[in-house]
Design a protein around this nucleic acid. Structure first.
Lengths: 216, 216
DNA sequence: ATTTGGTATGACCAACTGGTCATGTCCCAG
DNA sequence: CTGGGACATGACCAGTTGGTCATACCAAAT
């Protein structure tokens, strides 16, 4: 499918040097996006020579694919973990804990989330299709399994359209995280860099609304 | 606040030439974003010389501000129009018609919507703050007025958190439009370039879900 | 002491960027 | 016929980009 993005030389490197390079790369791609990312800045941040970078990776896209695969692994891990640790709860508690986990992820890996957003909205980023497909598939499976178990337990209104429910959850959760991560995005929630306590209250309000609906 | 982005020379131009330049600019910015947009490509598309461009506008940012103001005007217009033409309907019908109007806008002005997305997620675009604030303000006022009238009419569940409802609507609507405009974004709705009929059905399903909630 | 293989380095390259400007064209007033 | 102002033009500029490469370094093996 796609050749190894990193050269063997890179894996022989002392761990701290690898880390420096990966950190610099993640930082650069996360806050500039693929095309605006500058390899000159990257090597400056990492404290290595330009030539060295090309001993580690075949080209810019190779660097990108590498850090993108690391990011993907982390996301997968997190999703699996949340799914397992909330397996015993009822549907709406699971939703609440999932959103909380999302916020935690975003706070501990802000650059990875930023990278994710960059990829999502720059149609020309390499691997975009592959990346989005993977993430959406995981999200879909995640919400899907929550929903289908909730349905067999009778926690859902009967006759609900499953695709619609999936879409709704995906939309609301994604937007919630976006609003927490990106300034000037949400109308009234003011989630960006809001204190933990407010975020928790907002999460509960939202889940309530999803559960009970808007109508009288 | 900010000087006129277009030079007088530009307004003296024959209308079709103006249109050619504006079209080329919108196209370039919409599918490349601000920084990746190339003025060389732009002038090639418009069929004018590089130098001419700088007789019309002071610099790249000036061009951007100009087309961005045109876009803003169009969005404002559309919102006002929808608000007025649905004034007589009940809350959930208004929601439905609003979403339909959004989809129509996106179909008739795909490049403007694309530009909007680019601005939303590229933190470094000029005028970003100003632009987002304006759009969000309009969206907020729009949904806000819908909600508060619905409340006085008793169409809403009492005790609903208004900010939460606003956030929910904004999130779902925006994501719906995004999914319709950008490939590979939604999990299961497959809205991208879907036929009119499917889109209408999805809208109805979503509004239903918002109205009645998820819980049994 | 010499050779060898992996790694480090930064000057260098072509391609492109946003932006400038001397020159040219054209039309209209004198 | 002459002059002047508005507009057109593309060669040109300095700066940056992703990428290359001859050279240098340094350990271990001979």
């Amino acid at each position: 499918m796609s050749q190894e993005p990193a050269r063997p030389t890179f894996s022989h490197l002392p761990a701290d040097k690898q880390a420096r390079v990966l950190n610099a790369a993640l930082a650069e791609f996360a806050d500039q996006g693929y095309h605006q990312a500058s390899l000159n800045r990257l090597v400056a941040r990492a404290g290595i020579a330009k030539g060295s970078l090309y001993q580690y990776f075949p080209n810019k896209e190779g660097i990108f694919r590498h850090i993108f695969q690391l990011a993907l692994k982390l996301v997968r891990q997190t999703l699996v973990e949340v799914k397992e640790t909330t397996a015993q709860e009822d549907f709406f508690t699971r939703l609440e804990k999932s959103l909380q986990a999302g916020v935690r992820f975003l706070q501990t890996h802000p650059r990875i989330y930023s990278l994710y957003l960059k990829i999502q909205f720059d149609r020309q980023t390499p691997c975009r299709q592959e990346f989005l497909a993977t993430v959406r598939r995981h999200a879909g499976e995640y919400f899907g399994s929550l929903i289908s178990r909730a349905r067999t337990r009778g926690e859902l209104r009967p006759g609900i359209s499953e695709p619609a429910a999936l879409f709704l959850l995906d939309a609301v959760f994604d937007r919630f995280l976006q609003a927490a991560a990106v300034p000037a995005l949400d109308v009234t929630f003011n989630l960006h860099q809001a204190p933990e306590e407010i975020i928790q209250r907002r999460i509960r309000e939202l889940i309530d609304l999803l559960r009970e609906g808007l109508a009288a």
